[in-house]
Design a protein around this nucleic acid. Sequence first.
DNA 1: TCTGGGGTCCTAGGACCC
DNA 2: TCTGGGGTCCTAGGACCC
Length: 456
Amino acid sequence: MTFALVDANNFYVSCERLFAPQLEGRPVVILSNNDGCAVSRSAEAKALGIGMGRPYFQWQKLAEQQGVVVLSSNYALYGELSARMMRLLGSLSAAQEIYSIDESFLRIPVQGDAALLWGHSTRRRIRKELGLPVCVGMGPSKTLAKLCNHWAKKGRGTEGVCDWDSIPATQKARWLQKTPVDAVWGIGRQLGVRLGQQQIHQVMDLLRANPVALRHRYGVVLARIHKELQGVSCLPLEQVPPKHRHIQCSRSFGHATEKLADLEESLSVHTQRCAAKLRQRGQMAQGIHIQIRSSPHRGCYYSGVAFRRLARPSNDYRELWSAVKAALAEAYRPGVRYVKSGILLSDLQDMDAPETRSLFIPETDAPECRDKKQADLTDVLSRLQKRYGKAAPGFGVAGLRAPRAWSMRTDKRSPRYLSEWSDIPVVRAGYSTTTSSAPTSRKAASTIADSFSSKP
DNA sequence: TCTGGGGTCCTAGGACCC
DNA sequence: TCTGGGGTCCTAGGACCC
């Protein structure tokens, strides 16, 4: 039995290129929310030295000089393409774990040469049917499949597919000696530094290290990674995603603000998103944490946090909101330039879980006696939100669409080709624009039309 | 001027139990 | 006068992932 890891190459960039083929071969970078940092880079952009997670303002000049195409992230587009890729992968394997928006662990019932064949044919199908470039790594454990995926992306002669058991011994030794230890899944920067202090620099050093000493010095996580690297599978395929234990909604502001009213508005939006997520997942929350903070990159950093526990679990906006508002009053300090607010819900439980009644809450307040009108209102609002998305009515100030001080900046976003009727590409003559200038939906749609116009 | 968002897991330390 | 041993649970903080 073999684990496979299929991972899209610079996924967000590849999604954008699918609808804008003129971006092929050009340096492209996708920015995080608020146009803050680089989160996806084409090979050409990586070659220019634009690092993952680097703030935009630090390389903006370089980008302008080098003609880098810079886009805001378009999650509606990436989410839809991800769903299509996952469906296709599910149909090509015995079992599937969707690990992130652009990668999937799979169990495949073949080994050796047959595994390599499977890898190449899967890669071709995704390219042909979805237009997305992917790499395939395979091995007897998830960690080795991950490592092979890394080699499939970097190694010469792999053609995007690498299987642990099929790598010739000398080649394998060379790669293990060349690959830094923090390229291994689960070993980040800190652990990499600590391992370096013990003269463990490359993956080969780690493989040869004493497992007892590793366990003692670095804990169970590294001990498990070590086992996995030796081909002993310790991490099962998680076909059914475990229920979430927290729900989080937070956003940085487009501009800093000192006003309590701005914080209230943004937190009200987060509360509604949290409530919607809860209902979507069939859950209720009892613990509510809020955070408001200034920029950690400036002097006088302030982070205000506060916690409230509801008398009973809820997913009703108004119950959550009254707790959030009280928490905000506690966390707020005047005169601070706030740049971010957020909510974290904890103590989640299923809606259909039997409720432990409180001795101190009157029977008339039990769920079956709760105000029927309130339940009806929530129900209608969720249905409207499901149908109309962001345009649906909401509570209080949160539903207003006019940009506020705290609204995000996303002025470089491409059209939502796959989820908005108005953004579907149409063929119209007479436009020509570059995608690096901020495209409105229409303009960019026409750009795309230009690039497709030779194929009616 | 300008630095994302949403998760999980592990560990250490303290409070508490009998 | 003298006060052990073996647990659980919770929380905060840190590290990791994409």
